[in-house]
Design a protein around this nucleic acid. Structure first.
Length: 527
DNA sequence: CTGTGCAAG
DNA sequence: AATTCTTGCACAG
């Protein structure tokens, strides 16, 4: 009988033991003042001078010379120039150059590990766990700064692994500097959350490694809940209503209260984050799932103006889609209308399209393109009229177009329902008939990965990530395992599924309201 | 499947 | 808080 206050202990010990191991090594690379660096590379005469990047009437980012003079991100042009009359402005509305450099950065990082996840144009997570060697003779030196303010050192081996990770991160950043002329910050830790956070403790052009025993103190050093990646303005506001405005309060908040305000999934996740726990894996960045463009402007009120704006946007997007090469089958229009009551609201409408029926080679820019464009324009105007009732007066301050539903190049998509992957139907992960050279026997050949179709590749790599370090083969006891689930079955499951089951078990204990489509039902013993 | 909301840079 | 422009994911109907 561990009802009563045993629940409380269970929650915390489960968090501390079951989910908080340090077996991975994650590197986070964050390019310093990204747009500004790209502009300075393109135009070296800007170096050493205060530089701001503008979009519309905002300075979206600026270099460190400008920051020294008081310029801040997302300042209006007006106040930035008041602060700093010598500020030079470069227009950053065309993202082309930033996208190109971002691709180069991604490729450099990919040469260190196949597990690279892009976050925006200027950040990447890299899982380098598989690069760690287990020799007792390797140097145990950390490159760059170390974050730790604890007496003790974890004995699980993570300290040595992270030290190696710091050397790899150093090589990556040197490589980016030498090859591309780009400076960056690095964060090294045993999960994504902590790697990202620790990297910001020394800026710019430096790197920091978090020793696992200091993860709680890193998290507690944050001044606001907002500083936790995953907690944005909306969640922050809802938490404030509950009187939760510090890390400690979020840690000790009652799960049912959080669930009520945020929904089960996010509630669970952000409380985990408040302990520095983040089990999400580095998700390999594939081709984009949508490609779009939008433009904001002073209010317009006529269909003619809308037409002109849309036509311009469509040209931009079609160029991007063409470069991508895939054919989209969904088209979405987004409109921001200025509501009489002084504030603005976004609305969108979507429809399926038949794209490139001509199947003409993508290099052909013939008249088929014009015809295609006209067709798209009329569907766009139809979508527009589904949002705007042209009988009453209206004002529109933004229009956006987005294509999606790309035919993913290859065979596709019967029930990719995640769970079914783990039931008896066992796909062969790799062709096992081809003999590997002895040197590569236990390591995987990364060149093979490039040949695989993207979705299969993702699956193979994820499996490898999950299986990588074979940890203590503890026999799970009933207490480690949700009620009604066979412990032997439970311990065979991939970590992420085990975590999810445990998380469900925890919320279930507290809330008792639970949807029927949860994971536990699949693993319960028939009784 | 469609549309909204929230997160990220 | 939301401002820019863009993408991805979770949720609800």
């Amino acid at each position: 009988m561990e009802e009563e206050d045993g629940d409380h202990d269970f929650l915390f010990s489960a968090a501390a033991q079951s989910t908080d191991r340090h077996e991975r090594v994650i590197v986070h690379i964050d390019i310093d003042c990204y747009y500004a660096q790209v502009e300075m590379i393109l135009n070296p005469s800007l170096r050493g001078k205060p530089l701001g990047i503008k979009q519309k009437n905002l300075v979206v980012t600026c270099n460190y010379e400008a920051r020294a003079l008081g310029v801040e991100k997302l300042m209006t042009i007006k106040s930035a120039l008041e602060k700093c009359p010598s500020l030079i402005l470069a227009n950053g509305e065309d993202l082309k150059n930033y996208r190109e450099m971002s691709e180069k950065i991604y490729k450099v990082l990919q040469s260190y590990s196949p597990f690279v996840e892009k976050l925006g144009l200027d950040e990447n997570f890299v899982d380098v766990t598989h690069k760690i060697v287990k020799s007792p003779e390797v140097q145990h030196v950390i490159s760059g700064h170390t974050f730790h303010d604890s007496e003790d050192i974890c004995t699980c081996g993570c300290t040595e692994r992270l030290a190696q990770g710091s050397l790899i991160a150093q090589k990556m950043r040197d490589h980016l500097r030498d090859e591309l002329g780009i400076t960056s910050c690095g964060g090294i830790a045993f999960n994504k959350l902590l790697a990202k956070l620790v990297g910001t403790t020394h800026k710019p052009n430096q790197q920091t490694t978090l020793l696992s025993t200091s993860s709680l103190s890193l998290i507690k050093s944050l001044k606001h809940l907002r500083n936790i990646p995953g907690i944005g303005s909306a969640i922050n506001r809802k938490l404030e209503v509950l009187g939760i405005n510090t890390i400690e309060k979020l840690q000790s908040a009652e799960m049912c209260k959080l669930t009520e305000a945020l929904g089960g999934k996010t509630a669970n996740q952000i409380q985990q984050l408040s302990f520095g726990i983040d089990n999400s894996h580095v998700k390999i960045t594939d081709r984009p799932k949508s490609i779009g463009a939008e433009d904001g402007f002073i209010p317009i009120r006529s269909e003619g103006e809308v037409r002109k704006k849309l036509s311009c946007l469509l040209n931009r997007v079609l160029e991007l889609v063409e470069k991508d090469g895939r054919k989209p089958c969904q088209l979405k229009l987004t409109v921001r209308k200025l509501h009489p009551s002084s504030h603005s609201v976004r609305e969108s409408r979507q429809t399926t399209i038949e794209y490139g029926t001509g199947t003409g080679s993508s290099t052909q820019q013939g008249p088929g393109d014009e015809k295609q464009k006209m067709k798209l324009m009329t569907t766009l105007m139809n979508l527009f009229e589904r949002i705007i009732d042209c009988d009453v007066s209206w004002q529109v301050t933004l229009l956006g177009i987005s294509f999606s539903g790309f035919s993913s190049g290859n065979s596709e998509s019967p029930a990719k329902n995640s769970i079914n992957k783990y039931f008896p139907v066992k796909k062969s992960p790799l062709r096992s008939e081809e003999p590997l050279p002895p040197s590569k026997r236990c390591r995987f050949d990364e060149s093979v990965l490039q040949e695989l179709p993207p979705d299969i590749r993702q699956e193979v790599l994820e499996d490898m990530q999950n299986q990588l370090p074979s940890p203590d083969p503890q026999k799970p006891t009933d207490s480690d395992c949700p009620k009604g689930v066979d412990p032997l079955v439970f311990c065979e499951l991939p970590v992420e599924i085990r975590e999810e089951l445990l998380a469900e078990e925890r919320t279930k204990k507290q809330t008792t309201i639970k949807k029927s489509n949860n994971l536990l039902q699949y693993f319960r013993k028939a009784s």
